[in-house]
């Protein structure tokens, strides 16, 4: 599903040029759950942004679904992104002024889904995430775990081929964190491809493979046998 090779990314300020990704290469197969680990500044978030088509690379190749996307324009990336990729963030990034239902619906509005279809899909996913009873609440009225469930619902509602999770448990207590991780595992079991960035060894182990990064490079890659 994903094949990156010799991917490069620099950040340049007036005086410095920081290398964020240094010719990194790896593949993610369909149906995999890959955890990416590494200390702060190792480039894992940058990598995730590029995988999520939020950012462009400065060199190398990125093949997504057999398409070379590294030179795609912002518009084309947005097109590809909204139909194929779902995001889960550490800080949930729900919109406070919108209800649970509306937050999830937003993802469908931007893909141009019809209203009746939107309602059905949102209800379906809220049901599946067991948050349906909160559909008319605002994010500030929910607990952290519930907010993340809403965020995951939003990520899922478009049936994305790929789910990218950036520290999805970072703002949660360990019990709620585990619930979210189990949710992701379940999604993976149902066929979703997941790439997750995390600091937590515990969380990383939910995946089938761990890629460890340091200074923009891949250092090790472990295949886990837990599932």
């Amino acid at each position: 599903m994903i094949k990156i090779s010799n991917l490069e990314k620099y950040f340049t300020t007036e005086e410095y040029k920081t290398i964020a990704l240094n010719k990194i290469s790896f593949e993610v197969q369909k149906g995999e759950f890959v955890s990416i680990m590494g200390p702060s500044g190792s480039g894992k978030s940058t990598l995730l942004n590029i995988l999520g088509l939020l950012d462009d690379a400065d060199g190398g190749s990125f093949v997504f679904n057999d398409e070379e996307v590294v030179n795609y324009s912002e518009r084309k990336r947005a097109q590809l992104r909204k139909h194929n990729i779902g995001f889960v963030f550490q800080s949930f990034n729900l919109i406070d002024e919108l209800t649970v239902f509306e937050n999830v619906e937003l993802a469908l509005i931007y893909t141009g889904t019809k209203k009746s279809e939107r309602k059905q899909k949102v209800e379906e996913v809220l049901e599946r995430m067991q948050i349906m009873h909160r559909r008319s609440h605002f994010p500030t009225q929910l607990s952290g775990g519930q907010q993340q469930r809403v965020a995951v619902s939003r990520a899922l509602v478009n049936d994305p081929k790929l789910i990218l999770a950036d520290e999805p448990t970072g703002n949660l207590d360990s019990k709620t964190g585990n619930e979210v991780m189990e949710l992701l595992t379940e999604l993976n079991n149902q066929g979703s491809t997941i790439v997750m960035v995390t600091h937590s060894e515990h969380d990383a182990k939910y995946g089938n493979r761990i890629i460890r990064m340091l200074d923009g490079e891949k250092v090790t890659e472990n295949i886990l046998s837990n599932n």
Partner: peptide, 13 residues
């Protein structure tokens, strides 16, 4: 900004 960012991630033009 956060909201705008999120909407963009979701594909808003």
């Amino acid at each position: 900004t956060k909201e705008i960012g999120m909407r963009k991630v979701l594909g808003a033009s």
